[in-house]
Write a protein that binds this DNA or RNA. Structure first.
Length: 433
DNA sequence: TCTGGGGTCCTAGGACCC
DNA sequence: TCTGGGGTCCTAGGACCC
């Protein structure tokens, strides 16, 4: 069997790199990007990391520190990051069609094993092309399994001597596994890492040397797969199929919401968003879950968190139908007198729109799907809130504001960056003189 | 005052069936 | 006195990921 080679291409400090792309003054300055609601720090430039700012720190706790160190702070600007991610992925796919988009800023590639091409040169080409075409810097790790490619990528990113690229298929990986802390292994989270350390497993290499039965007992089959992957036996394949198996939409409120009316508007809004994503991947949903929760950090109010699952008689992607079912159930779980922090929706049991199982008594209404298609077309063309169900509300005061958001440089005409150029007369073509 | 959002996969345990 | 056992399906919850 031919040796497999996986590459993990990961954008460096992706959200920060996106902000810097249109704001070159940010280069070499510490920069952080906040989560939705300006809640937590979710991206940091190298300079911010060097200041000791941790991933996931609540913004309100770090605010003074950031100000003191003149750290530039941004709310997250998902239209911008999403658009730049699409550009990166499109460019990458042109270079290497065997690709899996793993997250907004990461992709796995499967490289042809016998291409005769020097992998180092190929990797450098990918980095250079991405930088030229999109302006986004990336790091690349190569390994005989996805888990090893992940580890290679960590080293490539962290240590400047690798210059953004490490190929673990060309060397003995053991010394690297020995330098890799167990909690830095892909698939080993905090809980498992603690458990393993208590039993003498401190590095990735330690894990590879344990007995299969023991690993399975401690970490279940997922952990065993990870261990096999670290030993160079590929167990996790490239997933090219991009369709989601579940779709969710939720957001924390801008303030503590108490009335059923506000909750209804918010839930209808999230159902609308989820339904758009559903139709975008040409699926229908057979199951709708709605949930509702009070503030989980509150010290004065007991936590109320509940959800309702609705199995639909026949799968649908119709926003109106989904809103109707969702609001009915919301009524059931609403408790007056509580202050709610968040609600949301999860769509599961997704089936392709073309092959859904119809109910014996169900007459497919072609006009309904045509209506949805028309609404989607209009909202794509004119902006996503141009047409909506009245149930989703109009002013939406419960929505959260994002106070430090950069412009939508690439997705809004009015936000396009302006380039000012001045040329000495001698360089201008005759027609401009 | 202020702590994100969107995913995947696995397992235990209950319901149900024969 | 004394009431089975094994299989399958579903779901909630947990762990992990970015």
């Amino acid at each position: 069997m031919k040796k497999r080679i996986f590459a993990l291409v990961d954008c460096n400090n992706f959200y920060v790199s996106c902000e810097r792309l249109f704001n070159p003054k940010l280069a070499h300055r510490p920069v952080v990007v906040l989560s939705n609601n300006d809640g937590c720090i979710i991206a940091r430039s190298n300079e911010a990391k060097a200041l000791g700012i941790n991933m996931g720190t609540p913004y309100f706790k770090a605010k003074n520190f950031l100000h003191r160190h003149r750290v530039k702070v941004f709310s997250s600007n998902y239209p911008l990051y999403g658009d730049l991610s699409r550009r990166v992925m499109t460019t990458l796919q042109q270079l290497e069609p065997e690709m899996e988009i793993y997250s907004i800023d990461e992709a796995f590639l499967r490289l042809p094993p016998d291409s005769g091409m020097n992998l180092n040169i190929l990797g450098r080409q990918i980095r250079t092309t991405l930088k030229q075409h999109t302006g986004i810097p990336v790091s690349i790790g190569l390994g005989s399994t996805k888990t090893l490619a992940k580890i290679a990528n960590r080293f490539a990113k962290k240590f400047p001597e690798y210059n953004g690229l490490l190929d673990l298929t060309a060397v003995d990986p053991d010394p690297f596994l020995n330098r890799c802390e167990i909690n830095d292994v892909w698939g080993i989270g905090r809980g498992h890492a603690e458990r393993l350390r208590a039993r003498g497993v401190h590095t990735a290499l330690d894990l590879t040397r344990r007995d299969d039965g023991w690993i399975r007992k401690q970490l279940t089959v997922t952990g065993l797969r990870t261990a096999m992957e670290l030993r160079g036996i590929s167990c996790i394949s490239l997933e090219k199929e991009g369709k989601k198996k579940s779709i969710s939409s939720s957001k924390s409120f801008g303030y503590q919401v108490e009335t059923l009316n506000e909750l209804r508007e918010a839930l209808a809004t999230y159902i609308t968003q989820a339904a758009v994503k559903l139709r975008l991947q040409q699926s229908t949903t057979g199951c709708l879950q709605v949930y509702l929760t009070t503030n989980r950090f509150s010290k004065t109010q007991t936590l109320y968190a509940t959800r309702e699952t609705i199995n639909l008689a026949e799968p649908t992607a119709n926003t109106g139908t989904l809103i109707k079912h969702g609001l009915e159930r919301l009524q059931k779980i609403y408790r007056p007198g509580l202050r709610y922090q968040k609600c949301g929706v999860v769509l599961t049991n997704l089936v392709p729109a073309k092959s859904r199982q119809l109910n014996l008594f169900f007459k497919p209404d072609k006009r309904q799907s045509e209506l949805m298609a028309a609404v989607d077309r209009i909202n794509t063309r004119w902006g996503r809130h141009t047409i909506q169900h009245a149930a989703a509300g109009f002013t939406k005061p419960w929505q959260h504001r994002q106070e430090k958001k950069s412009p939508a440089y690439t997705t809004q005409w009015q936000d396009l960056p302006m380039v000012k150029a001045s040329w000495p007369d001698s360089l201008l073509p005759d027609t401009f003189r």
